[in-house]
Design a protein around this nucleic acid. Sequence first.
DNA 1: CTCTGAAGTTAGGCAAGCCTAATTTCGAGA
DNA 2: TCTCGAAATTAGGCTTGCCTAACTTCAGAG
Lengths: 226, 226
Amino acid sequence: MPRHTPAVEDYLKTVFEIEHEGRVAGTAELAERLRITRASVSGMLKKLAASPDGLVRYTRYHGVRLTAAGRKVALEVIRHHRLVESYLVAALGYGWDEVHGEADHLEHVISEGLEDRIAAYLGNPQADPHGAPIPPRDGNLPRLQDRRLSEVGVGQRARITRVADRDPELLRYLDRLGLRPQRRLRVTERSPFDGPLCVQVDGAEEIYPLSRRVTDEIYVLVDVAD
Amino acid sequence: MPRHTPAVEDYLKTVFEIEHEGRVAGTAELAERLRITRASVSGMLKKLAASPDGLVRYTRYHGVRLTAAGRKVALEVIRHHRLVESYLVAALGYGWDEVHGEADHLEHVISEGLEDRIAAYLGNPQADPHGAPIPPRDGNLPRLQDRRLSEVGVGQRARITRVADRDPELLRYLDRLGLRPQRRLRVTERSPFDGPLCVQVDGAEEIYPLSRRVTDEIYVLVDVAD
DNA sequence: CTCTGAAGTTAGGCAAGCCTAATTTCGAGA
DNA sequence: TCTCGAAATTAGGCTTGCCTAACTTCAGAG
C-alpha cells in the first residue's frame, strides 16, 4: 500500500472520527478540526476524490465519505496514534494529559516495524490511556455501545469507557476527580437547563457536580437492569 | 528558537557532518548525501543564506558554512537522531543495523520534552550504538582524535571508537566479526594497492582480511606507545 | 414558494522543495 | 595564458497545501 502525506492522513483520520460519531463529514467541521480554512478543505477534498487512490467519495455540497481503502488508511493512522499515546504513558512516564500533541506528530512517522514493536512491548493493548479502542493491525474499530455521560438519567449506574483526549486541562481535572476509564459511578442528580449533573464515583463519599462541557466528553456504559 | 522544516534540518545536519570531517560542504557532496539534484541544492542554499534566520554563510561557487546558529540547530538534530537510535536499541530490541532509517524520520518530530525523557531513560549516554558521540543538550560535539582504520599501520594496536551507520549490510557484517565500538584490535598486515588490511580482534585467534571499503568506515583510536 | 444566512465552492496567489535543461564559472594542466 | 571538463548556477516548471476574497448553493423559516 502506498504511503500518504501527513496532511492526507490527517484528513482521513478526521473524516473517520466524524463518521464514527455517526455524522457525515462536512467541509465546515473538517476545517474546524483540522484548524484550516473551509476553502482549503474544499480544494483538498476535490483532489482526494479525483485521485486514483480512491480513498474518498465526495459529492459537492454534501460532504465526504471514506471508501474501504480510505477507512483502512485512517485506521492505521489511528492505531499509530493510540499506540504511541499508550507507549509514552507506559514506558516513558508521560501523563495522560501530555501525550495527545506528541502522538499527533509521531503518528505519521512511525514505521510498520516500530508499530509492531510498540504493540508487542505493550502486549497488544485494546485501549489507549483515555480508554479509546486501538484498532487491530488489519481490522476494524469495534463499535462500542457507550454513550455520553450527559445522556445518563438520575439514579443510573455506569462504567466509564473513555474520555475525550483533546483538552489537557480537562484531563487533569478528570484525573483529580478520579474520573478515569473503567471507573464506576452513579448519577445522583441532574439540574434542568443543562445545569450540573452530579456523580458519585466508585462508592466514594463525595459527590461531584459536573458541567455539561465535562459530561459531554465522558463516555460510559450504563448498567443493564435485568 | 524557531522550528525548521525537515528539509532545512537535513541540510544543516549534512553540512555539519561534512564540516566535522574537515571539509567545506559543496553543492555536489550535499546533493549526493541528500539524494537530490545539485540544482535543488543550489536553490536551497541561496534561500537559506538569504533567510533572516542566518543559519548559513554561502559564497556562490565556494560552498556553505554553518553560522553559530546553524550549528546549534544541526547539533540538536544530530542529538535527536543519536538519542533515538540509542533508545530503539536499548528499549525496543532493535539491532544496530535497523535504527538509522527510523531515526532519520523521527529526528524531525521529537519534541524537546520527549528528547529529555529519552535521554533521562538512557542515563544521558555519551555515544550512540555505533559509537558516534551524542551532543549534550546545549553543547558542542567533542572532537575525537580518532582516525580511519584504513590509515593505521601494520603492528599497531587500536580501539574501535565508532563505525559508519549508513549501510545496514555493512553493520551486519561488522557485527558478525565482532567489530564493535570499544572493541580492541591489532593490524597484522596491509597489502599494497588498497589490498585487504588484516586485523586480529580482541586477542581472538582468527584474523580477518578487510577491504578498503570496510576499513574506511571504521574509526579507531591508536594506542600511544610511550 | 421565496428569501436568507450558513455552508460550500471557485479563483487566484504564495511558499516550500523538488525537477530537467541550459548556461556559467572555476581551476588544473598543457 | 588558454582550454576544457567538472562543478555550480540559473531559468522555468511542477506538486503539495495552505491562504483570502468573491461567489454560489442549500435548506429551513416564514
